[in-house]
Design a protein around this nucleic acid. Sequence first.
DNA 1: GGATCAGTTGACAATCATTTGCAAATCAAC
DNA 2: GTTGATTTGCAAATGATTGTCAACTGATCC
Lengths: 146, 146
Amino acid sequence: MAKRQKVPAGKPDYVKELSKAGIRVTRPRRVIIDILTETDDHPDAMEIFRRAVQVDKSISLSTVYRTMKLLEGFGAIHRHAFGSGPARFENAAGEHHDHLIDLDTGDVIEFKSDRIEALQAEIAQALGYDIVHHRLELYGRKKASG
Amino acid sequence: MAKRQKVPAGKPDYVKELSKAGIRVTRPRRVIIDILTETDDHPDAMEIFRRAVQVDKSISLSTVYRTMKLLEGFGAIHRHAFGSGPARFENAAGEHHDHLIDLDTGDVIEFKSDRIEALQAEIAQALGYDIVHHRLELYGRKKASG
DNA sequence: GGATCAGTTGACAATCATTTGCAAATCAAC
DNA sequence: GTTGATTTGCAAATGATTGTCAACTGATCC
Ligand SMILES: [Mn+2]
Ligand SMILES: [Mn+2]
Ligand SMILES: [Zn+2]
Ligand SMILES: [Zn+2]
């Protein structure tokens, strides 16, 4: 029986996808992609860089930024701008969702509302537009009671 | 009959508000506040600076930035981050609304949906949070049809 | 396996938006 | 008008991101 590699659910094989598109799969890129596919938080470039260096001492911050731009172009990752500060990234593989940011702790909580998504499309339609993408962020505090 | 100054609807008297709060109402601040209350678009700091210079040649960009921070702290203006690029500001006086950005032209269209606002609060509540503020931006293109 | 060469990288300079330090100017109060 | 703390303009500093470029390295073809 021939060996068959199976990509784990939610972790599409971007490496294969890139090489299919004629883009080189280099060592730094592989390391960065691994970090992005294995994390479930929203790290910024510096944090991705820190994690990458632990795998490959020679990776540079420039390459992290370049790779983020490359992957974003591919739709492989999403770029966020929570509050102020540096851009933060996340693997685009999972289902679409929006974010609730805890103003006290900085925690990012993911949520999804089909009703809100539908209303957004409805509103855009009424204004004569098709939505390409959107950004919904709620900033809040834990309810007083806990 | 005593002269009674009436603030035009949607243009609260921030000048008075500031001086009441013990903050100096200086010439540069007055100029900048006037610009913000008289415009209905979403200018960035450089654009506000350009408009301010036409009124008072000596105003500096630093003061524009400082005044934006001051007014934001007062809740007098909102700071936006549409797409990438510099922050953009708008007078907070009007009713709350969200934005649809035309990806082709950069046009910013304002809209308001009570249903979306209600859903947001509902979602936050379900997650154990009270919303302090939120950001909803739709990015889209004019529907193909004319 | 080794040569080839365009795509990619690391180092570091440059850019962009924004903030800060500081001496001089200016408000608001007396 | 004098006064003293606040605010300003200027220039230098900062933080995030992008650009330059010589050196390197993957994929392809022998
Ligand atoms: Mn997320
Ligand atoms: Mn607006
Ligand atoms: Zn959404
Ligand atoms: Zn809203």
